[in-house]
Amino acid sequence: KELVLVLYDYQEKSPREVTVKKGDILTLLNSTNKDAWKVEVDDRQGFIPAAYLKKL
Protein backbone atom coordinates (compact mmCIF):
# COMPACT_ATOMS: atom_id res chain seq x y z
CA LYS A 1 0.00 0.00 0.00
CA GLU A 2 1.12 3.53 -0.68
CA LEU A 3 1.59 6.10 2.07
CA VAL A 4 1.33 9.88 1.99
CA LEU A 5 2.58 12.61 4.31
CA VAL A 6 0.24 15.47 5.23
CA LEU A 7 1.99 18.79 4.54
CA TYR A 8 -0.61 21.13 6.11
CA ASP A 9 -3.57 20.89 8.48
CA TYR A 10 -6.84 20.37 6.61
CA GLN A 11 -10.37 20.72 8.00
CA GLU A 12 -13.03 18.77 6.12
CA LYS A 13 -15.52 20.94 4.28
CA SER A 14 -17.96 18.20 3.24
CA PRO A 15 -18.93 14.67 4.39
CA ARG A 16 -16.79 13.21 1.58
CA GLU A 17 -13.63 14.75 3.03
CA VAL A 18 -11.56 13.99 6.12
CA THR A 19 -9.75 16.19 8.65
CA VAL A 20 -5.98 15.73 8.98
CA LYS A 21 -3.04 17.33 10.77
CA LYS A 22 0.34 18.33 9.39
CA GLY A 23 2.76 15.42 9.82
CA ASP A 24 0.12 12.68 9.69
CA ILE A 25 1.03 9.65 7.58
CA LEU A 26 -1.97 8.13 5.83
CA THR A 27 -2.77 5.24 3.52
CA LEU A 28 -3.39 6.46 -0.02
CA LEU A 29 -6.38 4.72 -1.60
CA ASN A 30 -6.70 6.57 -4.89
CA SER A 31 -4.67 9.31 -6.60
CA THR A 32 -6.16 9.21 -10.11
CA ASN A 33 -7.84 12.60 -9.59
CA LYS A 34 -5.11 15.25 -9.77
CA ASP A 35 -7.01 17.64 -7.47
CA ALA A 36 -8.21 15.43 -4.62
CA TRP A 37 -6.78 12.15 -3.38
CA LYS A 38 -8.70 9.51 -1.43
CA VAL A 39 -7.08 8.48 1.85
CA GLU A 40 -7.91 6.47 4.94
CA VAL A 41 -7.89 8.12 8.37
CA ASP A 42 -8.79 6.10 11.48
CA ASP A 43 -11.08 3.69 9.57
CA ARG A 44 -12.70 6.58 7.67
CA GLN A 45 -12.21 7.11 3.96
CA GLY A 46 -12.38 10.49 2.32
CA PHE A 47 -10.79 13.05 0.08
CA ILE A 48 -8.11 15.67 0.71
CA PRO A 49 -6.75 18.22 -1.79
CA ALA A 50 -3.69 16.65 -3.44
CA ALA A 51 -1.67 19.82 -2.77
CA TYR A 52 -1.84 18.98 0.96
CA LEU A 53 -0.20 15.58 0.47
CA LYS A 54 3.18 14.17 -0.56
CA LYS A 55 3.72 10.56 -1.61
CA LEU A 56 6.30 8.71 0.48
Score class of each variant (00 low, 15 high):
Phe47Leu: 07
Leu28Trp: 01
Val41Tyr: 09
Glu17Thr: 06
Ile48Arg: 00
Lys13Thr: 13
Glu40Met: 14
Pro49Asp: 06
Thr19Arg: 06
Leu5Glu: 09
Pro49Met: 04
Lys54Ala: 11
Tyr10Asn: 02
Glu40Tyr: 06
Glu17Gly: 15
Val41Lys: 14
Asp9Thr: 04
Val6His: 00
Leu53His: 02
Ala50Arg: 11
Gly46Pro: 03
Tyr52Cys: 15
Lys22Thr: 05
Gln11Ser: 12
Asp35Ile: 11
Leu56Gln: 03
Lys34Ser: 13
Asp42Tyr: 08
Leu26Phe: 03
Glu12Gly: 15
Lys1Gln: 10
Asp42Val: 09
Leu7Thr: 03
Arg44Lys: 11
Ile48Val: 15
Leu53Val: 09
Leu53Gly: 03
Glu40Val: 11
Gln11Leu: 12
Leu5Asn: 00
Gln45Ser: 11
Asp9Ser: 07
Lys55Ala: 07
Leu28Gly: 01
Leu26Gln: 00
Ser14Ile: 05
Val20Pro: 02
Ala51Gln: 13
Ala51Cys: 15
Ile48Gln: 01
Ser31Cys: 14
Tyr52Gln: 05
Phe47Arg: 03
Leu28Cys: 08
Lys55Phe: 08
Glu2His: 11
Asp43Gln: 11
Lys38Met: 15
Val6Thr: 02
Val39Pro: 01
Lys22Ile: 04
Asp43Lys: 11
Leu5Pro: 00
Glu12Trp: 10
Leu28Val: 06
Val20Arg: 00
Asn33Ala: 10
Leu3Thr: 08
Tyr52Leu: 11
Tyr10Asp: 01
Asp35Lys: 12
Leu7Asn: 02
Leu7Val: 06
Asn33Phe: 11
Pro49Phe: 06
Leu7Lys: 04
Lys21Glu: 04
Lys38Trp: 15
Leu7Cys: 08
Thr19Ile: 05
Thr27Asp: 04
Lys21His: 11
Lys21Leu: 06
Asp43Tyr: 08
Ala50Ser: 14
Lys34Ala: 13
Glu2Gln: 14
Pro49Gly: 03
Asp9Ile: 03
Gly23Cys: 09
Thr19Tyr: 03
Gln45Pro: 07
Val41Gln: 07
Lys54Val: 13
Leu3Met: 11
Ala36Glu: 15
Leu29Tyr: 03
Glu17Tyr: 07
Asp43Ala: 10
Lys1Val: 12
Lys55Tyr: 09
Lys21Val: 06
Lys38Tyr: 15
Glu12Lys: 14
Thr19Gly: 05
Lys13Phe: 08
Thr27Met: 10
Leu7Glu: 02
Glu17Ile: 04
Val4Asp: 00
Arg16Trp: 15
Lys22Ala: 13
Glu12Ala: 15
Asp24Cys: 09
Lys1Met: 11
Val39Leu: 02
Asp35Pro: 03
Val39Gly: 00
Lys54Pro: 05
Lys55Gly: 05
Leu3Pro: 02
Tyr10Arg: 02
Leu7Ala: 02
Leu26Tyr: 04
Ser31Gly: 10
Leu5Val: 10
Ile25Gly: 01
Leu26Asn: 01
Leu5Ala: 04
Val39Lys: 01
Lys21Gly: 04
Lys21Met: 08
Thr32Asn: 13
Leu7Tyr: 03
Ala50Lys: 09
Ser31Phe: 06
Gln11Arg: 10
Tyr52Asn: 12
Gln45Trp: 10
Ala50Gln: 06
Gln45Asn: 07
Thr27Val: 15
Leu29Gln: 02
Leu56Met: 10
Val41Pro: 01
Asp42Ser: 11
Lys38Pro: 00
Lys13Val: 08
Glu2Asn: 12
Gly23His: 04
Asp24Val: 06
Val4Cys: 11
Glu17Ala: 08
Tyr52His: 12
Asp24Ala: 11
Gln45Glu: 12
Ile48Thr: 02
Lys54Ser: 10
Arg16Thr: 14
Ile48Ala: 05
Glu2Phe: 11
Ala36Gly: 09
Lys54Met: 12
Tyr8Thr: 08
Ser31Met: 07
Thr19Trp: 04
Gln11Ile: 15
Pro15Asp: 12
Lys21Ile: 06
Glu17Lys: 05
Lys13Asp: 06
Leu53Thr: 01
Lys34Cys: 14
Val39Ile: 08
Leu5His: 02
Glu40Gly: 08
Ala51Pro: 08
Thr19Gln: 04
Lys34Arg: 11
Val18Lys: 02
Lys38Ala: 10
Glu40Gln: 15
Glu40Thr: 08
Asp42Glu: 12
Asp9Trp: 04
Arg44Tyr: 08
Glu17Asn: 07
Ala51Val: 11
Glu2Asp: 12
Glu2Ser: 12
Pro15Thr: 09
Glu40Ala: 12
Asn33Lys: 07
Leu56Ala: 03
Ala50Thr: 09
Leu53Tyr: 00
Pro49Glu: 05
Asn33Tyr: 10
Ile48Pro: 03
Val20Trp: 10
Glu40Leu: 14
Asp35Trp: 15
Tyr10Trp: 06
Leu53Glu: 04
Glu12Pro: 13
Asp35His: 14
Lys13Glu: 07
Lys54Ile: 12
Val18Gly: 02
Thr27Glu: 07
Asn33Ser: 11
Ser14Gln: 08
Val41Cys: 08
Lys21Pro: 01
Thr32Met: 12
Arg16Asn: 15
Leu56His: 04
Val18Leu: 14
Leu5Met: 10
Thr19Lys: 06
Lys21Asp: 02
Lys13Ala: 10
Pro15Cys: 09
Leu53Asn: 00
Ile48Ser: 02
Pro15Ser: 12
Leu56Asp: 02
Leu56Phe: 08
Ala50Asn: 06
Trp37His: 02
Leu56Val: 10
Tyr52Val: 13
Leu3Glu: 05
Leu29Arg: 02
Gly46Leu: 15
Leu28His: 01
Tyr10Lys: 00
Ser31Leu: 04
Leu5Phe: 07
Lys22Asp: 01
Trp37Phe: 04
Glu12Asn: 07
Arg44Gln: 07
Val4His: 00
Thr32Glu: 14
Leu5Asp: 01
Leu53Asp: 03
Asp43Gly: 15
Tyr8Met: 15
Arg44Glu: 05
Val4Asn: 00
Lys34Thr: 11
Thr19Ala: 05
Gly23Leu: 03
Lys21Arg: 13
Ala51Thr: 11
Glu40Cys: 14
Lys1Ala: 11
Arg16Ala: 14
Lys1Tyr: 12
Glu2Ile: 14
Lys13His: 08
Glu12Ile: 13
Asp24Glu: 12
Lys1Ile: 13
